[in-house]
Design a protein around this nucleic acid. Structure first.
Lengths: 231, 231
DNA sequence: CAGCAATTAATTTGATCATATTCTAGCCCC
DNA sequence: GGGGCTAGAATATGATCAAATTAATTGCTG
């Protein structure tokens, strides 16, 4: 199990549930985290042998994980058998904005029915930690905690299909968001987490949905703006 | 290429673009069609060797296609390494209703900008063929043409991410829809295609979105109702 | 220098085998 | 009849190799 120990060491925010997970699952989780949090860069080619070397596992589990991530939209097939991390165009960002607002607002709404005060405290705690990463200029920490905030919130929605769709969308913009954060710094990262939390405490699902939509829009506008200044 | 000839013969509505597609891609397309149009049954276990035998290809491309379809939500991992065709619960159907209405309405709206009269004629033609399958009691034909109608419409939206999400959702309910159609017959299959077409001809995007949402709701309510009577 | 062809290198794909894991059937006991 | 155990069958997983495909490099010619 030397190779799996290597995976564990390289995992960033990957959930290593236990040692019994097959290698392909562990590779998938590792790669997913790398994409979500921008360790893989937009446009970067991804090869089976390259990942096999860097992750210290064989080619078979890497192949299988890559297949899954292509279906997730997290990696794109180039048409010449090559695979890379997706670039985002502004058209794609507009699509992401629409889809995220529709889906994530609904998830916030649905989560309210299942949230108790301790759960909301947990979200508030995550947001405090997030604020710390912002003041410390910790981009990687910001990305992980921002994702954790949303993922935790939506996990209470009891809506696996919608959560699955949301995760797919996050995988599409993760690498680009990392680039944007690195370029503009953590001070430029607005969010509406406190509004979301306040709406949750008040059991106001409409306000929660609205704050979520605004949170989505602010984050994606950052990427959209960065794309515009890049051309 | 004997094995690939076998795939071709077994393909139902699979798009066999050319002979140059790798086997894993062809298996994926074949399985996708089988799931969409209900040749695979809710709850049915799916094994690598079983598909390898029935499709006449080796295990490697089958494994890779299965991985992709699990990520698509079209097949589900049981947690004991086994894979099966998803069953739908009513909670899932409600999620699907929400997501499909949000996404597919938007796709219809966006399609209007790119549709000319010939395109709309084509949709109308598909709908006429669809009406024929209904009067002939041709369940398989109905499912394929219903999907083709929507897929064609949404392809004009120039919204690859939203279309991808929609396809994912269709893959989740395809097998259950087939069961419902078989149980209640084609006469019970309401749709709003004519309203959609009329709205398209009038360039009325709000009406197109509304008719799409109603179309979605009617179709999914059929599944929901069937689930209720099954328990 | 540019363009083309040939060669080499890099990468993907599929086969196939061994090993690990899960399921099933049969047996025994209470 | 129910529960537990074991052996064998079924299935998934990962390794590893050869063949196919694509990319990159090199050499030659005008």
């Amino acid at each position: 199990m030397n190779q799996l120990d290597l995976i564990k060491n390289k995992a960033t925010a990957a959930q290593m549930n236990n040692e019994k997970q097959p290698a392909h699952e562990q590779v998938y989780q590792t790669l997913k985290a790398q994409i979500l949090f921008g360790d893989l860069v937009p446009g970067q080619p991804v090869t089976i042998q390259g990942l096999s070397d860097s992750l210290g596992v064989g080619m078979t589990p890497v192949r299988e994980a890559i297949r899954r991530l292509i279906s997730d939209g997290a990696l794109v097939f180039q048409g010449n058998r090559r695979v890379s991390v997706p670039l985002l165009s502004d058209v794609h960002v507009q699509e992401l904005i629409f889809a995220r607002k529709a889906i994530e607002s609904e998830l916030s709404k649905r989560a309210i029915a299942n949230l108790n005060e301790a759960n909301i405290d947990r979200l508030e705690q995550l947001d405090k930690q997030l604020d710390r990463t912002i003041s410390e200029g910790d981009v990687g920490g910001y990305l992980r905690l921002n994702h954790a905030f949303h993922e935790t919130l939506y996990s209470f929605a009891d809506a696996p299909i919608l959560s699955d769709l949301a995760e797919r969308l996050w995988l599409r913009f993760g690498p680009s968001l990392r680039v944007v954060c690195g370029r503009f710094g953590t001070q430029s990262l607005p969010d509406r987490h406190k509004d979301i939390i306040s709406a949750l405490r008040n059991r106001d699902s409409e306000k929660a949905a609205l704050a979520t939509a605004q949170d989505v829009e602010q984050g994606m506008d950052l990427i959209s703006g960065a794309l515009a200044t890049r051309t």
